[in-house]
Design a protein around this nucleic acid. Structure first.
Lengths: 117, 117
DNA sequence: ATAACATATGCTTAAAAACACATATGTTAA
DNA sequence: TTAACATATGTGTTTTTAAGCATATGTTAT
């Protein structure tokens, strides 16, 4: 007899955000306000491609991110806010200061700049 | 060479909240707005005493709760909000509907009522 | 068709987290 | 001082999660 699953959705959200790589991904998406593809995340966060892919899968499962395929790339973006809970969590993440992510921010800006060239 | 620890505090908060027992404890404390002792939590959540103790230790470590000893009891309560981040997280938890915790709420009300008798 | 690139996933291992049971510590009451 | 109660913790076990490596899948360009 399993315990009743209560607050499941919220727990899954917290769990998804309790890993450094995943929180960084969500933080990035929150702050750049743009779609970003897997290889860009790999470069910005300096993680292995297979790990980034796996973490994205987890974020997708709890509906924090969505994906859109464009040619050989897969772009990820924040799932549009659909609940007050999500909104508050997202606001909290937005509060995490840029200073904690300065390296990543810089790399990301350079990358996003290169896109248009 | 270790990776730099970034967003550590926030990750630890999310991790602390990513377990059902711990989230229930924080939810309870958020909603009853009262100190509550270990054995009351044990009864309300129907968990083993040793697990509740351990989970409380984890919540205390990340400063989500504080304790005060009164005789043979140890009462726990939410650490007063000291950051905007904490505030938003706390607001999010407050949004989790009572309906998901009806059993626990009922037990808790009965318990708190008995205190004064 | 083949090579190069982008992403995802199967499989194994390693590390972390949760649990269970016994027991220790500390407090109050008899 | 002994018993009963409340809480915490040491230890071993199981479960879950993350990482690493190889490789599969799918797309574009030659």
């Amino acid at each position: 007899m399993l315990k009743p699953m209560v607050m499941d959705k919220q727990i899954e959200i917290f769990k998804a955000l309790s890993d450094a790589t995943r929180l960084k991904i969500v933080w990035l998406l929150t702050n750049i306000d743009e779609k970003i593809c897997v290889s860009e995340i790999v470069e910005v966060l300096d993680e292995h491609q297979y790990n980034v892919s796996r973490h994205l899968k987890i974020l997708k499962k709890v509906k924090l991110v969505e994906e859109v395929k464009e040619g050989k790339w897969v772009f990820y973006y924040l799932t549009p806010i659909q609940s007050e809970f999500r909104k508050l969590i997202q606001d909290a993440i937005k509060l995490i200061p840029e200073s904690k992510m300065q390296n990543e921010i810089n790399k990301c800006k350079i990358l996003l700049g290169k896109r248009d060239q």
